[in-house]
Every structure is written in structure tokens, then in C-alpha cells.
Design a protein around this nucleic acid. Sequence first.
DNA 1: AAAAAAG
Length: 501
Amino acid sequence: MAETASNSAPSTTPTAEAPAPQETKKTTEAPVRWADLEDEASEEPSASSEDKGAPELGVENLKIDESKKINKFLDEPEDSNIKAVTAGETPYTSAFTFEELNLSPELLKGLYVEMKFEKPSKIQAISLPMILTPPHLDLIAQAHNGSGKTTCFTLGMLSRVDPNLKAPQALCICPTRELAIQNLEVLRKMGKHTGITSECAIPMDSSNYIPINKRAPVIAQVVIGTPGTIKKWMSAKKLGVSNVKILVFDEADHMLAEDGFKDDSLRIMRDIEKMSSHCQVLLFSATFSDTVKNFVSKIVKRDHNQLFVKKEELSLESVKQYKVNVPDELSKVMVIKDRILEFGERLGQTIIFVRTRNSASMLHKALVEFGYDVTTIQGALNQAERDKIVKEFKDGLTQVLISTDLLARGFDQQQVNLVINYDLPVKHDNRVEPDCEVYLHRIGRAGRFGRKGAVFNLLCGDMDQMIISKIENHFDSKIAEVPDWRNEEDFKAALRSAGLL
DNA sequence: AAAAAAG
């Protein structure tokens, strides 16, 4: 069974038959070894459950033996406590192996052979039984950046699809086109041997635009896309949802936040619930602000499972954060150029985050004028350009990528060791307030799957000082300072301490 | 004036 071609991102979305190009390049590291060290030995008393007297899962059994993981490059990224609150009477047992999950042999082959996984990560061990066990309760799941959330919901979708029913049965909604494409690539790779069909629902470029009413109805079994297009296909009746049994929101806090995609997301959720009697809803993100957490627990079904992490325990220990005080805008460029990019490829790939599209193109011009080979991505580019920039970066052809918050969430490129905040993330309606969720997502682009990484926050002026100290307070962690922005040795020391030199 | 997505 061939994959359904992606209508919307035709040339750039690799199919399962054409393996992603980076497969051939990033071979140096050993396969990811999850949870291969811990467990029964290092039990500790669990914190008592405070909420609703609901039963608490024995997640403490998954705690890692700290003494055994010294000097280990690929650490378990989320060894702090994940707090589980389960509903109903269903007891869940964490899965220490994928075999315990009753997956099809085809799917297991995808996990071991294509994905090269050995064992479930912690969030996978806890959440997969909840996702896969009847009565398939809704789930709100928070877990650290780079800890393997995508695998949780991708496996959920693949294992709940009936291969004999040629109709949409699983839907996944993402905040950006890039994330939709990336998630589709993962799904096709993981599901390579299952024959399950999939399609990407993102807006098409004007060049290959086909009016929705002239298009054939969707028969792909899994549809992954952005909210506007999904909504459009649904209301044009080209995407039938009566067989949908699992609905996933990736970056769910943003998808359901007041200033995010709330209206579209809710509309999609309600329309599916109307057509499809019991559709399981999965909400995944690394962040849930208190407001959003409160809201999302109301919109899912009354009986649902929850996994949460305290915000103080959310920063990745493997990623060292720094602040750099500079006198003016130009010195930000100088720091990037002379103190960071000078190290070249030794540091791996770098993403520089800026606040605005304008800021992106200014910085781009400046660095290009200094002779650096950088690329820039932001939402004003057309889809073909966006795809090209992402592909070049994922293929390792470009070393330094400037981005707006377009790539702040979910973008997974394991070779990114360095994140630079050229502008700090701030709330769009109130620029003196930091956006702590976006901050966490940005720094999570480094240190994927427990790898080492460094973040440099470039600070200029009192406002930046205030914002960064609010971020420190929010996560209850102190960000180390690079003493002198002009001193090369200070940066060397910082990078060394981060494990990158 | 300001990310993203889409009409």
C-alpha cells in the first residue's frame, strides 16, 4: 500500500519510501537508549496525591538511579517526577518494553528498525498504556522538551487505525505547517510497515492551488495539519470525521490558548464529537500555564487522565543557560559573530530566535555582510521557500538558522546544540512581560533527547534585565552570567561548562 | 507595531 501523496507539500515532504536524508548523516551516536538503567532498586516514597482523591500512578518506580548515569551523554531527559492523575477504575501499568503494549508486529518493526528505539522513554512508558487501553480516555499530557511526546501520540494514532477501513480515523492538529510536516514524516517512518495511509492538511501554495470543491474526498487514514485547513476541509465535507476515533492536539496549550488557535481548535473538537460518538482526545505539550491548564481540563471529557510536570522542574538540566549583557544592538551582532559563530561547526547547529520578521531580516543582512552563511525562516516566506530552508537545515547543509517563533515549538533537529535569544520572548499584548512558555520551548530546541546544549540570552538595557529576572523567578532557577561580552575566554569557559567544547 | 494560521 502506497502512502497517500501529500497534496500540499508535494516535493518537500519525504514519503516513507524515500527515507529522510539526515538518516544517512547522523550516524555517530548510539541508538537512543531509554530507561535502560533504572528502576526497582531506586524507589522513593511518592508525593501524595492532592487532587480529587484520584488514584496516583506509581511513576516513582521509573526514577533513575542517579549514581549510574554519571558521564552518560544521552541521559534520560525527564528524570524528575511526572505527576499522574488517573480517572475511572482502570489501573495502568507503565510499559517497560514496547512488547507490553500489544502493538502489531508491523508497528513494532517500525519502532525498532525504522525509528531505532529500544525501550519506551519515561513519558512513553507512562502515557502509552493510558492512550492504548480501553476505554481510551482523553489525556492531557505534559512532558519535557525532547522527551519523546511525538512518539506517544503517533503510536496512539497508528495503533488505533483499522487498516481495512479506508477513511480518516485519526487527526492531529499542529500550530505550524513545519510541525505538521515533521509529524507526518515521523508517522510515515514509524508506520512504514503498517500500510496505513496519511495526508498533510496545510494550505497549498498558489502555484498548485486546487479549489477545495474540486478536490476528491480525503481517504487517508491519518490526517495531520494546521487548524485553518483542517477546518476548511471539514466544512467543505471533503474530510469526513464520522470514523475519527482519536484526535490529537500537538502543542496543545498554544492550540487552546486565548491568543492562540482557541476558536478553530474548539470548533474542530466539537464538530468531531458531534459526528463521532466517542473520539479520544489527546492534548500534548511541554508547557501548560495555569490558566490554560485550568481551561483544558474543562474542555476534555469529565473522565480523563492527566500527566503534569512542575514548572520548576521543566528546564532541561543538560542545556546550560547564560545571559550576556551588551551595551547596544550592534554588539549583539558582534557577540554572535565574534564570540559564538567563530567556533564554527564544532558547536553543531545553531538557531537564533528573534521577535519580529523585520528583526530577522535585519540580522540576516548583518551576518551575511560579515561573510557568514546563514539562512532565515519566518511566516512571510512562501511555502516553497520555507520548505527549502527547513530541508537544508535538517540536511545539515546550513549551520546557522535565524527564526521567528515559527520554529520555537516542536522543531526537532538533534544536531542543534546552541540556541541564541537575540530578542527575549515577550507577550505580544504586553511587551514588558516575558512569555515563559515560549522561552522554554525555544531553549528546548537544543538538547534534544538529553543531548548537551547551551543557550545565550543577549540582553540590552534595563527592560531585558527585568524580563530575564522574571523568567528566572518563574522557573525558580538562576541563569549564569557571561562576565564580559568582549572576552573570548568567557565564552569558551561557558561553552566548555556546557559540554560543547 | 506585533508570531502564527487562513480567508
